[in-house]
Simulated scan of single mutants.
Amino acid sequence: MKKILFVALLFASVAGFAQDVDIKKGDFGFLKGEKELNVEFNYSNLRLLKENLTNEQYVEQRAKDLNEKDKGNGEIWKKKWKSAPDMIWNTKFLELLLKTYGKEKDVNIGDDLKSAKYTLVVDVVWIYPGWDAAIMKQPAKVSTVLRFVETANKSNVLMEIETDKAPGDQWGNNFSNESRIGEGFAKTAKTIGKMIVKKLK
């Protein structure tokens, strides 16, 4: 009985960290032999939480809640949230894509490679920050639309992939929403990087 319970809990844990990846168009063939990949991040379509709040709505609501608990804390958090895309999320994505795809295929990956023939546009469409209350926690979740386009003609989409609810969490406790979300970006990049390497073999 204990073994059955352990297996059930293990399966539930693994299922909780699954990520849906749906290839909507194209394949990775165009990347064969390429030694550079440019990456751009777009947050203009971002929605948050189950209520699908805009970023502005979320920031206003979250800052208000934090200020009510501890005056001034909401304003401090606003600065952290504003810097999170550049300082944490985009960086995490680039690091893991380099580690999985770049290192394996000797490809230079960056967010300012204008000489690269192709650009990966990361359209961040939904984020759930998750929470951590020490003894219980909920991982962050990140959903994106990834479009591989020609750098010189970005209307030419060679491949489009939708990723749904990539889990963001770390071992132990992580009380930073921004850091947990960053792990969702890392998970997305790791999954896509491994897919590219597998398909190009």
Rank of each mutant, 00 (worst) to 15 (best):
K187D: 11
R180E: 03
K165Y: 04
G184N: 14
T163W: 00
F185E: 06
N153D: 11
D164N: 13
V157K: 00
N153C: 03
G184C: 14
N173S: 15
D164C: 06
V157N: 01
F175E: 14
D164K: 12
R180C: 12
T188R: 03
E160L: 04
E162R: 06
W171Y: 13
R180V: 05
V149R: 12
K165H: 08
N174C: 12
V157E: 03
S155V: 07
W171K: 06
I181H: 13
E150T: 07
K154Q: 09
A166E: 05
K154Y: 03
L158D: 02
G168W: 00
E162W: 02
D169R: 11
S176A: 10
W171P: 09
E162H: 08
G182T: 15
S176N: 09
G168V: 07
S155R: 10
D169W: 08
T163F: 00
N177H: 15
W171R: 05
N156M: 02
A166M: 03
T151K: 09
G182P: 14
A152M: 03
E150V: 09
G182Q: 12
E183F: 15
S179T: 15
L158T: 04
D164I: 12
N173R: 05
A189F: 01
K187C: 14
A166L: 05
G184I: 13
I161F: 01
G184W: 06
D169F: 09
E160C: 01
E160P: 00
N156V: 07
D164H: 05
D169K: 12
W171A: 14
Q170G: 07
T188M: 01
V157G: 00
G172V: 00
G168I: 07
S155Q: 10
P167K: 10
G168H: 05
K165D: 02
I181G: 09
K154P: 04
V149H: 11
V149I: 06
N177L: 12
M159F: 00
I161T: 02
Q170D: 08
E178L: 09
K190G: 10
T151Q: 12
D164E: 04
D164Y: 07
N174Y: 00
S176E: 07
F185I: 08
A152F: 08
V149C: 03
V157M: 01
N177Q: 14
G184R: 13
R180W: 08
D164V: 10
F175L: 14
N173L: 06
I181V: 15
M159P: 02
L158I: 07
F175Q: 13
Q170A: 11
K165E: 11
A166Q: 04
G168Q: 06
S179L: 14
G168Y: 00
S155N: 08
T163D: 01
E160H: 02
